Simulated assay, not measured.
Amino acid sequence: MPTANALTELLAEKGVLLADGATGTNLFAMGLEAGEAPELWNEVAPEKIEKLHQDFVDAGADIILTNSFGGTRQRLKLHKAEGRVHELNRLAAKIARKVADRAGRKVIVAGSVGPTGELFVPLGALTHEDAVAAFAEQIEGLKAGGADIAWIETMSAPEEIRAAAEAAVKVGLPYTYTGSFDTAGRTMMGLDPKQIHSVAKDVGEGPVAAGANCGVGASDILSSLLDMTAADPDAVTIVKGNCGIPEFRGSEIFYSGTPPLMAEYARLARDAGARIIGGCCGTSCEHLAAMRSALDDYTPRPRPTIEEIVDKIGPLRNKTASESGGDSGRERRRRRG
């Protein structure tokens, strides 16, 4: 277990923590255009990023994720901003830090680190060394801006998780990581939920926490959660699921989750052993406030079965896997949240 840090200390104090909701969904609602880099808003519209963080804190979040999901040079290159990695990530963390420091209670600033979008050799051109360097460049910026922890998320490849974890250790930040189990119950690169805690257990002091985010519907990620907590009951497990089920209506994506449904998702996640619970795509501040109330009023119940999850949250989207995961990575590949 990693040495004491802000996240482990707050976990010890509160037992279970509420992470924030969707970044992308909410920024699109604020006027972000499809294809635009959210990270550039850290400079050109910092007041909007600050408002989103503040709204999540007001809804009860214990952890807020920086607006830096696509903050590696590989992702920023798509927007001709690959030379601005350190500055954009520093600004992302600085904005979140400002909100956290005035909260009047302990709020963790988690530096969001998403996938590079590149394939590793031999499938692609990205080497381990280049990946570590790219993630270290990003995490240096996040650390400079005041991030408490590197929050590695929405990963598919075990080797990419390890590269990002190595980078965090190199920079001197504790880290967490999550996979997105969106392809027949596994990640796109074949990682099984049962394996998540062991992926980077030997990197530095190991992760503070590990788990799942995004994927497809809330039922599917709870199914993955059962696998993860059964495989390592003592580990701190993260679950940050999408708001109900994503549905395409024309070219737009809508999420079926209501605040009461997401409150039930939070209770089921707690019953299934998650210690850090949040929302991903589609999760608004209203949803998050309902989740906060559900966790504050929590009464322990037996560990849920798949049948109970389906009964309370809705059907599994992934028809081919009986235990976990989901059937579509379209939204995740576009961007988290």
Rank of each mutant, 00 (worst) to 15 (best):
P2Y: 10
L7C: 08
V16N: 04
L17C: 07
L17V: 09
L17D: 06
L18V: 06
L18N: 03
G21D: 01
T23P: 00
G24P: 01
T25K: 05
T25L: 01
N26I: 02
A29Q: 14
M30H: 12
G31E: 09
P38H: 04
P38S: 10
N42K: 10
E43N: 05
E50H: 14
K51L: 13
L52Y: 04
Q54A: 15
Q54V: 00
L65S: 10
L65C: 13
R73D: 08
L76W: 03
K80N: 15
A81T: 11
G83P: 07
R84M: 08
H86K: 14
L88P: 02
N89R: 06
R90E: 14
A92H: 03
A100Y: 02
R102L: 05
L119I: 03
G124S: 08
A125P: 00
H128W: 12
V132M: 04
I139P: 01
I139G: 04
G141P: 01
A144Q: 11
A144P: 01
A147Q: 01
D148I: 04
W151V: 09
T154Q: 06
T154F: 06
M155V: 12
E160P: 06
R162Q: 11
A163Y: 03
A168E: 03
V171C: 05
P174L: 10
P174W: 05
T183H: 12
M188G: 00
G190R: 10
L191I: 14
D192R: 13
K194Q: 13
I196P: 00
V199K: 02
V199M: 10
V203P: 04
E205D: 15
P207Y: 09
A209Q: 07
A209T: 09
G215T: 02
S219W: 00
D220I: 04
L222Q: 02
L222D: 04
L226R: 10
M228T: 05
T229N: 07
A231Y: 02
D232P: 08
D234G: 09
V236S: 10
K240T: 10
K240Q: 15
K240H: 13
I245G: 00
I245E: 02
E247N: 14
F248W: 15
R249F: 11
S251D: 14
E252F: 13
F254V: 14
Y255V: 02
M262D: 00
E264F: 05
R267I: 11
L268S: 04
A269Y: 01
R270D: 05
D271P: 11
G273Y: 05
C285E: 13
C285I: 02
A289S: 13
S293N: 12
S293I: 11
L295W: 01
Y298C: 08
T299P: 00
P300T: 11
R301Y: 00
P302C: 03
P304W: 00
E308N: 09
E308Y: 05
V310E: 14
D311Q: 15
P315A: 13
K319N: 08
S322T: 15
G326T: 07
R334F: 12
R334W: 07
R335G: 12
R336A: 13
